[in-house]
Amino acid sequence: MPRTPRRPADLAGTLFLGSAAVADGLLTPADLRSRAWQQVLHGIYADAAVPLTHRHRCLAVARFVMPPGGAVAGRSAAYLYGAELVTATDPVEVLVPRTSCVRMARVSTHVAHLDTAETHLLDGIPVTTPLRTCWDLAQWCADPVERVVWIDALAARGAVALPDLTAYARAGAGRRGWRRLLDAARLADAGAASPQESRLRVRLVLAGIPRPQTQVVITRDGRFVARTDLAWPEYRVAVEYDGVWHAESPGQIHADRRRLNDMIAAGWVVLHVTAKRLRDDFDGFVRELRTVLRAREGH
């Protein structure tokens, strides 16, 4: 019969250094390789009964890897503020002073000046402030659309106010990258409900379409009809992003079609775009939307 793995009570539910557990006599190297434990980062372990999240990796870095003056930053900081757009296996992004460096698998290290006023402790983890997090995201995301996706997510969760972010970007005028943040802040919208909706909205604006409003409530005779993803109320035109879930059940299809009929009855034109259309024929969709907006002028 296989040997039951050792599970010392002192280690249950915790993060710990494997070398320290071995040195203290709590475990042997063979014990660490058992199914009782899981490796979080190189040399850092956790109870296998704990479902591993990106936060566990951030906490492991903070406790055992982070040099003085460093902080969890970028996408990982955004995750800790509620923008859960990374997975448990994604690298932890950290920002460290120029005098330090972190070299470890699954840790992405950025080196730059970091003022102490731009970090604080969040549940025991040193993390860049939301404003500084947005600054770093604007610098580290090569795609201007993705910069806005992250900032949208932070704004939607109340972690950052867009007027404050614009002021923060302007206060950094002259620093390398300040215009990146300012442009992203101008395009951001706290009403974004999902990353794909953010991508759609920003790509439309960059393509020359007038900026839509988010989360527009449509009514008819004083009765609520729908809340739509993106809309131009002055034209009574709405765009809906269709995810896979829309086709998951007959009941959902019925509800979607009834909602669509109600929107049309209220005098609205509704265009739908799928992930495939967004990926393979975005220009075609832009032409359709532009034609509809022109046709609806004066309505």
Results as ranks from 00 to 15, higher is better:
T214M: 09
L52K: 08
Y45S: 08
T219N: 06
H120Y: 14
V205I: 14
P2E: 14
I125T: 05
C141V: 03
E240V: 04
V127D: 00
L271W: 02
V102I: 04
L187M: 10
V72E: 02
V22G: 07
V292Y: 02
V225P: 01
L200E: 07
A190R: 11
L121I: 07
V286P: 04
S34R: 06
P210F: 07
A153T: 04
R257I: 10
E288S: 13
V202T: 08
T128V: 11
A169I: 01
A30H: 06
G284I: 12
D280F: 10
I125W: 00
G177R: 03
G284K: 09
G177A: 06
I44M: 12
T109K: 02
R290K: 13
V273F: 04
I44L: 14
L154H: 00
A88I: 13
F282D: 09
M1S: 14
V94K: 12
A20R: 14
A265L: 10
A156L: 01
D183N: 12
R287I: 15
A20D: 07
W245C: 09
M66F: 13
Y168Q: 06
A255I: 07
A71G: 10
H272I: 06
G267L: 08
D136A: 09
R203W: 09
Q213R: 15
D31Q: 09
A9N: 06
A73E: 02
S19H: 11
A46K: 02
L17I: 09
